[in-house]
């Protein structure tokens, strides 16, 4: 069974096609990233998968349950961390957890034990009995994630989990999410537009634009797909003897020699590099300097989307929600 299975999903708002015939799957225990510019259809897809919106056509199964005919079952196995902060400022962290527990029918004893465990895991236990309005943006987001974990969901949906957070908090949140996957085997479906984060966290990513999926693959394969890595070497005794031998090494695409400066294009730089070095050493070449450059996911993204600016336009409600979330985060 796939954790999520989406087949030809479509959502139309009036004349706007927000999600256009999208199909993909997410494996159990996988971290799956949904990347795309603002307004590409990421949140609309999440809202359909989490039973907040009805699809216009197509179907999707979450943990084997149909989102249209079995929404109650879907709701029991998922956790959602929406873009906005929904923890209540006027309640304490612990009270927010209690509220969540009641909404998910978690027993009293379980709630006490699990919320202590989760608050400790998220390093919030010292603030458990403080009102959330005294929390920083990062703490609120952590509490939000903690609440979503209370009922031990199989699949956690994270919509832009690090939007508006500082670098340290972002790093901390990702380390929590990674250890969640490691320790509890939770499947993660997330959206983000921070490419570096998607690259380091996701097992596979889908790139979505104008409601259509443009590519789905592992970050490494996507990066290789736009032309491979560059290995740059500076050598002491340049001679043309080894040029041909380099060209036939597995994974090497192109070799460019310019005096002592060698530029090699290779499909998987990290695998080609040891072979290149040992070949050069065998040929008696003295290597002074090695550098490997990989194309980033950002370049993949730009090559698929183009560099044109996307000015975000949404309903008034959406724009206000966004700015309110950012305001609450900054505190």
């Amino acid at each position: 069974m796939k954790a999520v299975e989406v087949s030809r999903l479509r959502k139309v708002f009036g004349e706007i096609v927000a999600v256009d015939d999208v199909s993909f799957y997410v494996d159990e225990g996988e971290v799956f990233g949904f990347l795309g510019p603002n307004g590409a259809g990421k949140t609309t897809t999440i809202n359909m998968l989490t039973t907040l919106l009805k699809p216009s056509s197509g179907s999707a199964k979450v943990w084997g349950f149909d989102i249209e005919s079995e929404p109650e079952r879907v709701r029991e196995v998922i956790g959602l961390v929406p873009q906005e902060l929904t923890v209540d400022d006027e309640l304490t962290g612990y009270e927010n957890m209690m509220l969540q527990a009641a909404l998910y029918h978690v027993g009293r004893e379980d709630t006490r034990r699990k919320s202590r465990e989760i608050l400790e895991f998220l390093e919030l236990e010292k603030f458990a009995h403080k009102k959330v309005e005294t929390y920083s943006g990062g703490m609120k987001k952590r509490l939000e994630i903690g609440c979503a974990l209370l009922h031990e969901p199989r699949i956690l949906f994270l919509d832009e989990p690090t939007l508006g957070l500082d670098v340290q908090t972002r790093a901390a949140i990702w380390s929590y999410i990674k250890s969640l996957v490691r320790e509890k085997g939770v499947t993660i479906f997330m959206t983000t537009h921070y490419m570096d984060e998607a690259d380091s966290v996701c097992d596979r990513v889908a790139i979505i634009d104008y409601g259509k999926i443009r590519a789905v693959d592992t970050p490494n394969n996507l990066k290789s797909s736009i032309g491979g890595d560059l290995v740059e070497l500076e050598v002491s005794e340049p001679n043309g003897q080894f040029g041909e031998s380099l060209r036939v090494l597995p994974g090497v695409l192109d070799v460019d020699m310019n005096g002592a400066h060698l530029v090699i294009k290779a499909l998987r730089g990290e695998e080609a590099l040891p072979a290149i070095i040992s070949m050069l050493v065998r040929s008696g070449v003295d290597i002074r300097r090695v550098e490997m450059k990989r194309p980033s996911l950002e370049e993949v993204f730009l090559s698929l989307m183009g560099r044109k600016l996307r000015d975000f336009e949404g309903s008034r409600e959406e724009v206000m929600k966004r700015s309110m979330t950012l305001r609450r985060m900054r505190k």
């Binding site: 907040l52 959602l80 929904t86 309110m324």
Partner: peptide, 14 residues
Amino acid sequence: RRLGFLNKLLVAPI
């Protein structure tokens, strides 16, 4: 609705 809390209630199995 505006703060997103309503959605939190709507995704819960209640």
